[in-house]
Design a protein around this nucleic acid. Structure first.
Length: 226
DNA sequence: GCGACAG
DNA sequence: ATCTTGTCGC
């Protein structure tokens, strides 16, 4: 899948084309167990300012969870937010930010869905295929799939089922907090995704790498203002 | 037609 | 996502 293919597409004129691209990417998704544990992983997130998107990638060590590096990409936005097509809005800037890291992460974590998507191609799956890296989607709210409320203790989870398939899980990363919706993106499976998200969120509801990326993107955004 | 709907 | 102060609860 050529990254250039996701640029300059418009909504809703290119809807059929966009669906075709998602279908092509979906076919390339490989849900296999993660090999050896990653030593480097990155959290990716973005914030917005007028017609610009500020995307950030924060590189962390694992399992130590120490931040090692960060990269930023600010681009003009051309694509609107359309449920189910988030990748076309945020993906290009995220690919640019990732390309600016000097060290290559062995796992990517996104604030959004992996395969727990209407057509099986959420942001994390899309990015995982385009980068060829293992990826996980850890969303704050549900997009597709049915689930039952997981137990109230940290670490408890319940399967997220879509069209008869277990596409992810509702995971309680902390006691007394709402669950997050975890689903594999590419080159990892549901079990491994849940395990990694839990290991990356020792203190808060969200993963440390994504929290760092979220905080930095907002900081950069403020600097662009004042 | 009605309801759902990542960020 | 973003617009936005104080405020209730752990």
């Amino acid at each position: 899948m050529d990254p250039e293919r996701v640029k300059a597409l418009k909504w809703p004129e290119d809807k059929a084309l966009l669906k075709g691209i998602q279908e092509d990417i979906r076919k390339e998704i490989r849900l296999i167990p993660l090999g050896k544990p990653p030593e480097l992983l990155a959290g990716i997130d973005a914030s917005f300012l007028d017609d610009r998107i500020v995307s950030v990638a924060c590189l962390f060590s694992f399992p130590g969870l120490e931040q090692l590096e960060q990269s930023v990409a600010v681009r003009k936005l051309s694509f609107p937010y359309i449920t189910g097509y988030l990748s076309f809005r945020e993906g290009p800037a995220m690919l640019e930010a990732l390309s600016r890291l000097s060290f290559k992460p062995e796992l990517l974590i996104f604030d959004g869905q992996g395969i727990a998507h209407p057509r099986g191609v959420g942001l994390a799956a899309f990015m995982g295929v385009l980068t060829g890296l293992p990826s996980i989607g850890c969303a704050k709210t549900r997009l597709a799939g049915e689930y039952i409320e997981p137990g109230e203790k940290r670490g408890e989870s319940s399967p997220l089922v879509h069209k008869g398939e277990v596409v992810g899980a509702a995971v309680r990363t902390q006691e007394k907090v709402r669950p997050v919706f975890v689903s594999p993106g590419n080159l990892i499976d549901v079990e491994g995704s849940v395990r990694m998200v839990l290991e990356c969120s020792p203190r808060y509801r969200l993963t440390e790498p994504v929290r760092a990326a979220d905080a930095l993107s907002r900081k950069i955004k403020k600097e662009l203002i004042g």
